[in-house]
Amino acid sequence: MKLKQLESLLGDLQQFENPKVELEQYPTGPHIASRMLYTAENSFGDVSNKVVADFGCGCGTLGVAAALLGAEHVVGLDIDSQSLDIASQNAEDLELDINFVQCDIRNLGWRGQVVDTVVMNPPFGTRKKGADMDFLSVALKIASQAVYSLHKTTTRDHVKRAALRDFNASSAEVLCELRYDVRQLYKFHKKKEVDIAVDLWRFVPQKGQGKGI
């Protein structure tokens, strides 16, 4: 599938009706989501024929993108049942067979080794400090091949240090810097549209890790 085609399919997905600020529910735009999964597939072969988990999947954009690019099994995990309803509808509309699990990533029970790749657009931790690092820590415990994630560019050094030192990643690499346009979703947003610089990361878990949690 071509990048343009992927982006256009993702652009038609239904997004949050009433985003919840405490969960930092920002939709992953089609521009970012398509580039993230397209890179994972075409530069690293981490998607097609793989088992892919989408952490904090929200309306399922990244998981849908993985399925469209030929992932054999996709699981979307989210704490919010309303998001999961929209995500299942999105998958159904595109005739994609995606599994969803309602859970809190931070106390997930999961057997390791089976998931190849985790993709995620975690809460950036602006509301609940450290939320994105909690997600990353769990992702690196269950993925056997790679973790793709978005983090604010301002936190780049911190993310790298935490991944390599605290979560035992064998590598942590910024693939590119993207602009995340956060529309005025919430009342506390003063400007109509704000661009946030985010890094697209690829982490490789240590071999023999991924034992599960």
Binding site: H73, V75, N99, L108, G109
Partner: peptide
């Protein structure tokens, strides 16, 4: 839910030592 997903999930209740399968 496919059984492949079931094959990964486990119960993570506090105090539980073997929540799988």
């Amino acid at each position: 839910m496919r059984l492949l997903t079931h094959n990964m999930l486990s119960s993570n209740i506090k105090g539980v030592t073997s929540g799988f399968p």
